[in-house]
Nucleic acid binder design. Structure first.
Lengths: 377, 377
DNA sequence: GCTCAATAATTTCCTTCGTCAAGTATTGAT
DNA sequence: ATCAATACTTGACGAAGGAAATTATTGAGC
């Protein structure tokens, strides 16, 4: 962690993380929040301020009775350090530079003509150079790169065990990418990266448990329980797309029938509508009832899958997003209906945010993972 | 914790818990397991031995190369302290006395003529007295009572928020039961209690993540993720019974259709077989194909529900149990088939233990919760 | 303006916990 | 016997937080 890999006290990590995700926040508030003495917070904050990661904000408006010394809230110095995040897909690299507050400062992408490792690494190196040496002069203050890859990824070793889209097996991606870029690299599964981003910097802030559902070609889910990301012991977790919806439904590529993904994945919609995805969206928007019903059923299936998550782990809040939600307007009410139908008891009260995914969000997730690595988590 | 509520060092708790669940185990092995120095283990073990909770076993067979001082494994002194566990149902109290190793030493039960709190507490007091003052002389070495109740229970305050079967709402059960019995009381949801029992003393030992599925009138599920029990922020978690199975299936009491419970709960089987549950079991065993198909479909639905858990959280292992599994032979193959069908990728490799639930197991779960409370968790 | 109560932050001192490194204990092999 | 190997114990030390006193900064009341 931090400039030269020194280990730091737990309280320092805790304070940094809390300011990062919940700042600006005063020392007393931190002490309450983290169950520490205010003395401990003062001590933990000092080195962070000295290293330039935090700064004190001028006291602003008061909250309490009105008497007493006003708090001096701590905030991140967002431009203290920058982070590169790159999402690697089968045919494209999407890269961003984020500041410490996970705000996107620059972005770039490259089409990939192939998926073989050496070629991808060359392209990655060039993409990172483009980002860091372009306008903004980020190079000097950037040490870390986060990579987001779909599939089975061992975050702790940086090994890509298996990525179907890239057709990679047991690729030591961290090691190779560090050589190719000269940066300290962190590798994570793409959905988990996005989940972390949303948990630390998005709508999941402060949640003890949280779920992020991505809707697209596949339907996935990242899970935070008891404040920690769920990994799944066999490398499988969050496969909401293969929760059952209709035993008698259409065959799924997984071998079963009627999985959520077999009803609501992009391919399923193309199949049921008999149109390309964009055309189906257009038709439904134009009022085609038959195609509209396809989206309705798909949305309902997604909602039922989400309800399964709510029923099983009971998260504080759920965010639904993904490139499939470019057709947000067609899905949204049906996702909610499916969720309400299937959520049991108080699970139905779980707040559900449904919204399309901004471009670059996946790459921002990758950058977030490298911020998390800086903090040492 | 411990004789007089003193707080103890984290390492002491860790060592005690590890010996409890994984003993006999030597100090070096504990040090490796808990990522502590062997010196720390020595220091943590000492007070536990002095208080009589642990003892040293004579060194037995050797494992390594053969040279070197043999290890002296630490074990629990199971009879150091006893724990009462009582499962409270709408019409019965089932109580056990367990030793520190969660072995049942005595058991008793009482039918309940009503479910009103004062009456139940009176009966509870008498049941506890029967257990402690009967043969075995447990009274002197028993300080704790664990209570398992179905429904929404706040474990930390001992408040029963809502229990449908008992028709209790916001009952301060811990407080009242402590007055009625003179013991230190811990209250927990019944499925969570059973899950803890299995995680600490049963087939879940050593698992970082673990699921226990109970099959009966309702179908429930307890979940351990990252070593911690999952609570669910709205008091809902583990509602595997209301995972979707068949959109077009029979109406469920929850308002949806085709939930696992609506197909595989005891009531559903009675409905579909047109017979009382026991008669249906007999008919299926006698080869009645129509009734056999009812069990087959029910088992498959349960298997799909379990697969949803495996797909979403990827536990190290899953145990399926419950009073419904008195018809174990009829369910088992179909549960496995449904699971295999719906489990995605590596999730299908998750070990599945399916077995009927011994009588008293629920009460043993309640006792386990009080053991956990002793250890301070 | 001065004093006081209220709240925030800091300082100083101290306890606690766990590590390190050195030592003791107990074995099998030569 | 001696030695290597492994298990455990001891005592000195250091890092991390807590408690309580102290300083800082405000508004309210006079």
């Amino acid at each position: 962690m931090f400039p030269d890999g020194e280990t730091v006290a737990p309280a320092v990590t805790a304070v940094f993380t809390a300011v990062l995700t919940e700042g600006p926040i005063s020392r007393v508030a931190l002490a309450r929040r983290l169950d520490l003495s205010s003395a401990a917070v003062t001590k933990a904050a000092r080195p962070l301020i000295e290293m330039g990661y935090l700064e004190e904000l001028a006291a602003t408006e008061r909250t309490g009775p009105g008497a007493g010394r006003p708090a001096s809230p701590l905030v991140i110095r967002a431009d203290r350090e920058f982070f590169v995040g790159v999402k690697i897909t089968g045919d494209e690299l999407i890269g961003v530079v984020c500041d410490l507050g996970a705000q996107v400062r620059a972005s770039a992408h490259r089409r990939l003509a192939a998926a073989d490792l050496d070629y991808v690494l060359t392209q990655l190196g060039e993409l990172v150079d483009d980002l860091l040496d372009g306008p903004g002069d980020y190079r000097a203050r950037t040490r870390r790169l986060g990579l987001a890859v779909s599939g089975d990824v061992d975050h702790s070793t940086g090994l890509v065990r298996y990525s179907p889209f890239l057709r990679w097996r047991d690729v030591p991606l961290r090691e190779r990418a560090e050589k190719a870029t000269g940066l300290t690299v962190t590798v994570e599964n793409d959905v988990k990266a996005l989940t972390t981003a949303e948990h630390w910097f998005g709508e999941g802030v402060g949640a003890e448990s949280f779920a992020l559902v991505t809707v697209g070609a596949g339907i996935g889910c990242g899970l935070v329980v008891n404040g920690r990301l769920v990994s799944g012991s066999h490398g499988v977790a969050g496969e909401i797309g293969h929760v059952g919806f209709d035993v008698n439904g259409p065959a799924c590529h997984c071998g079963s029938r009627g999985c959520v993904e077999a009803v609501a994945g992009t391919d399923a919609i193309i199949r049921d509508a008999g149109l390309r995805f964009d055309d189906a969206v257009a038709a439904a928007r134009a009022g085609d009832e038959r195609v509209g019903a396809v989206f309705a059923r798909a949305g309902e299936a997604i909602g039922c899958g989400i309800a399964a998550v709510a029923n099983l782990v009971g998260p504080d809040r759920i965010v639904v997003s993904g490139e499939g939600l470019s057709a947000y307007d067609l899905f949204e009410p049906h996702i909610r209906a499916g969720f309400q139908r299937q959520a049991f008891g108080a699970a139905a009260d779980c707040p559900l945010s449904i919204r399309p995914l901004p471009f670059e969000e996946w790459a921002r997730g990758a950058a977030t993972v490298s911020i998390k690595a800086l903090v040492g988590q």
